[in-house]
Design a protein around this nucleic acid. Structure first.
Lengths: 384, 384
DNA sequence: ATGAAAGCGCTAACAT
DNA sequence: ATGTTAGCGCTTTCAT
């Protein structure tokens, strides 16, 4: 079949746009005629009629619940396929009071860890026949509103990967029997599930590495002060250094981007050489990568003059010009943990220990902390 | 409120895991008691009872359809908020035969263009109060199956950002009145909406730039042969060079990753110096970035010995060590186009010209092509 | 301005 | 093994 546009194309010559590429573009309006028959959606009743059975049998043919003769089943399935009918999951959820739907709160998928999180989550949901309904928060302030909108869809629960969960909202969600799973942030409720990278440990390990190199002036490149993960990483770093009698400078950044990293490099270079830190821990890789770029051409060399450790282990961190020592977040373990929780929520009787194979500890705040994995590269010279 | 875990923590000492970080991790099993009341979900009837009105009024209070006294409305809204009730969108869709749901087919969100696409789409949906239901395809082979699963949810239509849409499937979707929007791929049906980057134009422009520099030996770093976008970019490149009497080598790669780019660099370096291409067009930035890294330390300098142009304009392409000349895909225009189509689909009578401000042309294949934007950086020395 | 009642497309309990 | 029936929680006529 050759796809042929059968609509009318309206081309306004006054809308011609030259692009300097030797081509002329037009604003084009394509009008495709609507289908003659608005396709009144088929129902199980239509299938039943066509297969000469009762409507209930159609339901049974697809669900597998209740008795049905195999040959009847096959006939129904064949007829349904011809008509192009599948059970309406929305209608089914009316009756059963449950749809295999999960709400997911996410935010801008920039060049960072978030896209990876979402990707892993989506893959896991697909594997478990859970349908993710996405709620996009442009800023953290919108998260609570989205959490509220979530309830219109009567999903099994909500996975939060952005912003903070207000206590009252957590209670509201849990009290209607939904699960609440917070990824890399506190759940703010005793019954919420929360799993996160062990940020303080990462910070402490970073301190250990830098101290082991004999560094003496330390700097933490942090995110916003209200960023939970970043703050915890700094806490651990401060802690680890403190035990050795050191204390780092902490530079906060409004955004955790490469641009912020470049600015931090400028700030460092503005210091008198003898006051410049030589042991830097960045609470994410994006800042660290920008920082490294900002130091290029300044005469400062890594790791001779300065060591730097990042967090996230982005793909770019292993690229030739960076070779950034970093922490890999235990993404698989965390996603596994979330799915374990969802299953346990669905079948409380069959509750089994979480299958996450990674090491983890339970914090006093109810958060399950999974250890990050240190990936040593060329921006440090130490061994653990 | 201090979050206090009230469940029992079971700690198996035999599961102790040392991590070499001075901490000991345990596999921890946390048992939180189930809520005493399984929270039988509230319904509009509960709200009605509490507000001393009929159930129908509750519906009117929220929908705004039908007459209702303002004070009654306020009372109902207040009561509903106390109870924590919101209209069940699934139930509503039963009656109205329509839910503000959109299916989105996506795939692995790796370090590439896809995360950006999804991010923009999600943001647009949020702005238009459309709820995206995500379908994740680990490989292109799964796309058709997901397309079929899509129909269980009676969404308004489906946006495809991965894989190919079989003609029969397109027809099945469209025949039930759903829209079908393909992003950066053909819709394979006259009534499907398809919008894509003008890949051939990009390829041709790349040729123009490289020819303008006086390059004489050309190479295209391509993706798999069945990649629609990559192939069209190569087509344009071959075309543009052909008009000047040149012909490039074309190296196909199974994956369009930095790793593939590194391998291509090795392949180039294995050629005798006088046979090496000096004008390279990569059909995506990831390959180009890997290629640049692969050339480091080889003695070949960019853009003296060799120019390279990528496609996608990834964030990393503007980083100091790369400064890659590239094409920015007209993402905003494409997403806008998709949303225009969805609106037109919903209200055919109010059909209005697409609001995408970018230049675009209508291909003979029914695809709306939006011009990419050339971003000149340091891996080329030419001017357009 | 409000209420009563029908019914969306299904599943599940019950009857045959 | 199959059919009949009663809803699920809403929106929407239609009455009052």
């Amino acid at each position: 079949m050759t796809p042929v546009i059968q609509g009318k194309v309206r081309r306004n010559d006054e809308d011609a746009i030259g692009c300097g590429d030797g081509n002329t573009y037009y604003r084009v309006v394509l009008t495709v005629p609507a289908r003659t028959s608005p396709a009144s959606a088929a129902t199980s009743r239509d299938v039943a009629k066509a297969a000469n059975v009762s409507q209930a049998l159609v339901s049974r043919a697809f669900s597998g619940n209740g008795r049905i003769a195999p040959e009847t089943r096959d006939r129904i399935l064949k007829v349904a396929a011809e008509i192009g009918w599948r059970p309406n999951a929305l209608a089914a959820s009316m009756v059963t009071g449950d749809a295999p739907l999960v709400s997911v709160i996410t935010t801008r998928l920039s060049f960072d860890w978030r896209a990876q999180v979402l990707s892993h989550l989506l893959k896991a949901f697909e594997a478990w026949h859970l349908q993710p309904l996405l709620f996009y928060a442009e800023s953290d302030r919108e998260v609570d509103r989205l959490l509220a909108e979530t309830i219109s869809w009567r999903t099994r629960g909500v996975v939060v990967t952005a912003g903070v969960v207000p206590e009252a909202r957590a209670e509201a969600i849990l009290s209607r029997g939904q699960f609440l799973a917070a990824l890399n942030r506190p759940g703010n409720h005793p019954e919420a599930f929360s799993i996160a990278t062990d940020n303080p440990i990462g910070g402490r390990q970073a301190a250990t590495v830098l101290l082991g190199e004999g560094r003496g002036r330390f700097l933490a490149l942090a995110g916003p002060e209200d960023s939970w993960a970043s703050s915890r990483r700094v806490d651990g770093f401060v802690d680890g250094l403190g035990q050795a009698g050191h204390q780092p400078m902490v530079w906060h950044n409004a955004t955790m981007t490469t641009e912020a990293g470049l600015a931090c490099a400028d700030r460092l270079l503005a210091l008198p050489p003898n006051e410049r830190p030589d042991g830097v821990f960045s609470t994410n890789d994006a800042i660290a990568l920008g920082f490294i770029d900002g130091l290029r051409g300044s005469g400062m060399t890594i790791p001779q003059d300065l060591s730097i450790i990042g967090f996230d282990n982005l793909p770019a961190s292993s690229w030739t010009p960076y070779q950034l020592t970093s922490f890999e977040q235990p993404l698989d373990a965390m996603v596994l943990g979330v799915l374990d929780h969802i299953h346990a929520h669905q079948q409380p009787e069959a509750a089994q220990p979480p299958s996450a194979p990674e090491a983890h500890r339970l914090g006093a705040d109810g958060v399950i902390y999974c250890a990050p994995r240190l990936v040593l590269r060329q921006t440090t010279r130490g061994q653990l």
